[in-house]
């Protein structure tokens, strides 16, 4: 029931998370920051703008990105398999990348290609994470994992650590905000969207927050307080990282993911497999 509610109200919830994040970010920079409802003000304002499009394909892909993102969340929360949800996420990336590379703006095309680099950095690790959940709880099923009487976080600390550093790649946060790179390519894939169509992409990113933090929540098993603590910790850690680090090159991101994070996760899986 609660899963269904979260799925349906995911954009609203994600908007709140995004608003809180903007405040936290401002406070970390000793600014006051916008109000909590700021994302919704932006949302309603964008609705009222005149619609400008490059061509229909591009505008359509923005909407498809939003739908795919929402459906992916539904698959994660209402379905029963983590792996399928991980693979579904590729569809959302597809819509974003096809939209980004369908226009002749160099920033957009570059952003789309960098989005692909993001994908090869986080996708294998997500698969490994799903597998390690299976090894510990004996199921890919999200309901079984949430009723698992134990502390997955203590059995897969390295996977959690790797996932902690993968979250900046998924949410476009600072050391790895390569596809979005506001100072460099001005938003990357989302640059050419405007007005109501930008709204779709903007809201899609809020849903991505819920998608990612659901995975973090799973690390608590059936101890929901631990899950919530982990989500809060991750949230603050990711923002701290965002505010305190500079952007890296995309090659460094891929290398970091492939030569540090994935071996760590594999090591963890080997240890779990031997432990059993």
């Amino acid at each position: 029931m609660i899963n269904l509610l979260i799925t349906i109200f995911a954009p609203v919830l994600g908007g709140f998370v995004f608003g809180i994040e903007r405040i936290i970010k401002a406070r970390m920079q000793s600014r006051i920051g916008p109000p909590v409802l700021q994302p919704f003000y932006d949302f309603f304002k964008l609705m009222d703008k005149r619609a400008y499009i490059i061509h229909s394909l591009h505008a359509l892909m923005g909407i498809m990105y939003f739908i795919a993102e929402w459906f992916t969340l539904a698959v994660l929360l209402l379905g029963n398999d983590l792996l399928i949800a991980v693979f579904f996420h590729v569809i959302a990336v597809l819509a974003l990348v096809i939209g980004a590379s369908s226009v002749r703006s160099p920033y957009s095309v570059l952003g789309g290609l960098r989005e692909l680099m993001h994908m090869i950095s986080y996708e294998p690790l997500m698969v490994l994470m799903a597998v390690s959940f299976y090894l510990i709880t004996g199921s890919f099923d999200i309901k079984t994992i949430l009723s698992f009487n134990g502390y997955p976080i203590f059995q897969m600390p390295l996977v959690f650590f790797a996932f902690l550093l993968v979250i900046p790649m998924m949410l476009q946060k600072s050391p790895f905000d390569i596809a979005e790179a506001h100072q460099e390519i001005i938003g990357g894939p989302e640059i050419e969207y405007s007005g109501p169509f930008y709204e779709a992409v903007y809201t899609g990113k809020w849903i991505e927050y819920i998608y990612v933090f659901t995975f973090v929540f799973l690390f608590g098993g059936n101890h929901y307080w631990l899950g919530i603590l982990l989500v809060i910790f991750t949230f603050i850690f990711v923002n701290l990282l965002d505010n305190s680090t500079a952007r890296l090159d995309y090659r460094k991101m891929v290398k970091f993911s492939w030569f540090v994070l994935i071996p760590l996760a594999v090591l963890n899986i080997i240890l779990i497999a031997m432990w059993r």
Binding site: R50, A51, Y52, I53, I54, H55, S56, A59, L60, V103, R104, S105, P106, Y107, S108, I186, I191, E192, S194
Partner: peptide, 10 residues
């Protein structure tokens, strides 16, 4: 879509 067309940003 019935909307105005605009140049890509460069």
């Amino acid at each position: 879509f019935k909307a105005d067309f605009v140049q890509p940003y460069n």
